[in-house]
Amino acid sequence: MVTTEKLNLLAPGHRACPGCGAAIALRQILRVVGRETIVVSATGCVETFTSPYGQSAWEVPWMHSLFENSAAVASGVEAALEAKGEKANVVIISGDGGTFDIGMGAMSGMFERKHNITYICYDNEAYMNTGVQRSSATPYAATTTTSPAGKNSYGKMEFKKDVPAIALAHDVEYVATTSIAYPQDLMNKVKKAIGIKGPKYIQIHTPCCIGWGFDSSQTIAMGKLAAETGLVPLFEVEKGKQMVVRKIKNTKPIQEYLNKQNRFRHLAKEDKEKIMEKLQEICNDNVKRFGISE
């Protein structure tokens, strides 16, 4: 008997960094979507570490073209399958840069045209592949190589773009946020998404030890803390149904999350207290808005 737990469609030997959150996300996604799947990815960490010529780690058909077009390429894949009367899950796995920023237009088009595609964004909150530059997914106050903290700066001065809300505004069939720290939650959501016809959007929080500055053994712990502080709410919205939110028993203070990462280290200085408070406010708002507390 083949158990789905043993299905691993990401071959070993790929080039992800030790402790890579995105690689963990990939394995969990592929375990659920199975072999009858075509994956399209944008340029980014996943594309680079899985696809060296002649050494592909993909055991499902996979296509990469450019940074900003994975949603359009996948639209073409889906259109071709439909034209040929063939069936396969069409799944996009692209990073936050390729989703929140440069690929936003193509994604909007794909949603609006109602393609039968599951768009999965692995969100490591910056351009990690090119050396930790700020994206619109980078959280408030995080220092990156293009939003460095300095005399005149406390890191990224803008808030994280709310892409799930943008997806919902397109009236897509299913929107969910999840985290690699909650594999069952992640796999359940992916499974649900591929079972629904039409456009779906899933955003996976994937901590990055190199970009965020924490030990590679702490990837899962960091993902847990992000959820437990309320900074990253985990929810799902199926069209026509009420939002379901993952509850947290006792939310933790944001400081616990910030103290463990180099990208927030500059906030420990006295004059940055207000910024810390602002981050706590974001968490409090999330807890209230999404009803995270149990």
């Binding site: 359009a72 390429v73 894949v77 071709a80 034209a83 040929k84 193509a106």
Partner: peptide, 19 residues
């Protein structure tokens, strides 16, 4: 398509799927 960029990307994907 939502742009010429997407139009070209769509036929990229469809051609790669054998259409």
């Amino acid at each position: 398509a939502d742009s010429e960029f997407s139009a070209a990307s769509i036929v990229y994907g469809s051609s790669g799927t054998g259409a």
